[in-house]
Design a protein around this nucleic acid. Structure first.
Lengths: 150, 150
DNA sequence: CTATGTAGTCAAGTGGCTTGACTAAGTATG
DNA sequence: CATACTTAGTCAAGCCACTTGACTACATAG
């Protein structure tokens, strides 16, 4: 196996490990802040709904699941008070799913939890290399090599 | 929200996106190489079994599932010819799960697929920053801020 | 030798997801 | 406008990876 391949393997493992740490850490932080009836999958939904809401179909595509699954997820979140369905402004077939105040509070909690996870990384690497890390990953993403869902 | 928090959010999204790209890309590459009866979860199992095999319990802990689930996964992989159970050298209760030749071939395919995913990153960033990226992630991991499962 | 702990499997139940079928509303064609 | 087609969403049923609970076989401490 070539050196480049070995490097690729190491990098893969590290990226996957970092992602794992993030998902677990964010979830733990969200739970610790009182939102204990949510799972990581809900966070990925919130990320799509956060700015201006989304339709069930858009959410489904973002999550990589069927519309039916997304619809069920929305129904669950409605029941728990995190989101609500509104009539779509332009398309009477569609319904706009938006965060409630509770949902917004949860996304703020998730943001804070993410910061908690990343903070030790910042302390370890320093601000300069941290920026470089972010910029390099952004460069990769900008070239379309990352899925647009996140 | 502070600047550091914004940076943390961006970084989180980028890392998660990169991980997503890796998982999808590796899986696609493995399927394309003829191992089309496997799912990403099997790859995570192979990663633990690859060097010297592991017990069902060890595999379960690595994957973050129950022993029963791991046992079922092993049973499935046995049926497909990727792994086999051997008597454990020291503990008659335990059984050592090891890769078959087919299983090893699959891990090599996964390695190659990972390299395929990472290669465009290397081309985009250059060797120097690529090394820096890996080293920084390794530094973070070395401090125990990443889950040891990967 | 006995009691407790550990490795693994069997059995049954669960929950998130899928496919399939359907209604309501938009859109394009004549 | 009238018909055919597409799209947004839900309802219903089934699937499958995972869970909890119960159990056997072996190990280990007292």
């Amino acid at each position: 196996m070539s050196t480049a391949d070995t490097q690729a393997l190491e990098l893969s493992a590290l990226v996957l490990g970092a992602a794992n740490t993030l998902v677990d850490g964010i979830h733990s932080g969200v739970v610790a802040r009182g939102f204990d009836d949510l799972r990581p999958a809900h966070g990925f939904a919130f990320a799509r709904l956060a700015p201006d809401g989304a339709t069930v179909g858009e959410l489904a595509e973002h999550l990589g699941v069927t519309k039916q699954a997304a619809s069920q997820l929305v129904e669950e979140l409605v029941g728990k008070g995190y989101v609500e369905r509104q009539p779509h402004p332009f398309d009477a077939r569609a319904r706009l799913v938006v965060l409630t105040e509770q949902g917004s509070a949860c996304t703020r909690a998730a943001d804070a939890a993410a910061a908690d996870v990343v903070r030790p990384w910042l302390n370890q690497l320093g601000a300069k290399r941290m920026r470089a890390l972010r910029d390099d990953l952004a460069k990769i993403a900008a070239r379309g090599h990352l899925r647009p869902t996140w």
